Computed example of a mutant assay.
Amino acid sequence: MTAENAAASPPLDFLQLAGKPVLVTGVANKKSVGWHTAKLLADAGAEVKLAVHTAERREKVRKFCGDMTVFVCDVADQDSIDQLATDLADDLRATPLAGLVHSVAFADYSAGWLPFHETPRAAFLQAVDISCFSLTALSNALSDRLDPESGSVVTISISTTRMAAENYGYMAPVKAALDSSVCFLAKSFSRFSKVRFNAVGPGLLKTQSSAGIPGYLDSYLFAERATLRREAVTTPEVANGVAFLLSPRSSGINAQHLTIDAGMGVNYFDADLVRDAVS
Results as ranks from 00 to 15, higher is better:
residue 156 I to A: 04
residue 140 N to S: 12
residue 182 V to L: 04
residue 256 Q to L: 11
residue 248 P to A: 07
residue 154 V to D: 04
residue 190 S to W: 01
residue 209 S to W: 10
residue 209 S to T: 15
residue 140 N to E: 07
residue 137 A to T: 02
residue 210 S to G: 11
residue 245 L to Y: 03
residue 160 T to A: 12
residue 165 A to E: 12
residue 150 S to T: 12
residue 188 S to K: 06
residue 169 G to F: 05
residue 147 D to N: 09
residue 241 G to Q: 07
residue 186 A to I: 01
residue 150 S to L: 08
residue 144 D to A: 14
residue 239 A to D: 03
residue 208 Q to V: 14
residue 178 L to K: 04
residue 190 S to F: 02
residue 219 S to P: 01
residue 198 N to Q: 06
residue 186 A to N: 09
residue 243 A to K: 01
residue 204 L to N: 10
residue 226 A to S: 14
residue 236 P to Q: 08
residue 203 G to P: 04
residue 186 A to H: 11
residue 219 S to Q: 10
residue 229 R to S: 15
residue 228 L to S: 12
residue 176 A to G: 11
residue 249 R to G: 06
residue 145 R to M: 07
residue 229 R to Q: 15
residue 240 N to S: 13
residue 248 P to E: 09
residue 184 F to S: 08
residue 178 L to R: 01
residue 162 R to Y: 06
residue 137 A to R: 05
residue 213 I to M: 09
residue 177 A to Y: 10
residue 138 L to K: 01
residue 229 R to E: 15
residue 252 G to K: 12
residue 179 D to S: 10
residue 172 A to D: 11
residue 230 R to D: 10
residue 177 A to M: 15
residue 209 S to K: 13
residue 180 S to N: 12
residue 165 A to L: 15
residue 156 I to M: 09
residue 249 R to Q: 13
residue 142 L to K: 00
residue 149 E to L: 11
residue 230 R to W: 10
residue 144 D to R: 15
residue 201 G to S: 01
residue 150 S to P: 01
residue 226 A to I: 09
residue 230 R to Y: 04
residue 191 R to Y: 08
residue 211 A to E: 15
residue 202 P to K: 02
residue 139 S to P: 00
residue 159 S to K: 00
residue 256 Q to C: 14
residue 196 R to W: 01
residue 208 Q to W: 09
residue 187 K to H: 14
residue 139 S to N: 05
residue 152 S to I: 06
residue 175 K to C: 00
residue 161 T to I: 06
residue 218 D to T: 14
residue 149 E to M: 07
residue 138 L to E: 00
residue 164 A to W: 12
residue 203 G to F: 00
residue 150 S to Y: 05
residue 164 A to F: 09
residue 253 I to Y: 04
residue 202 P to M: 01
residue 143 S to T: 03
residue 163 M to F: 03
residue 239 A to L: 10
residue 245 L to A: 05
residue 212 G to F: 09
residue 169 G to K: 00
residue 175 K to S: 04
residue 249 R to K: 09
residue 184 F to K: 04
residue 252 G to C: 11
residue 148 P to N: 03
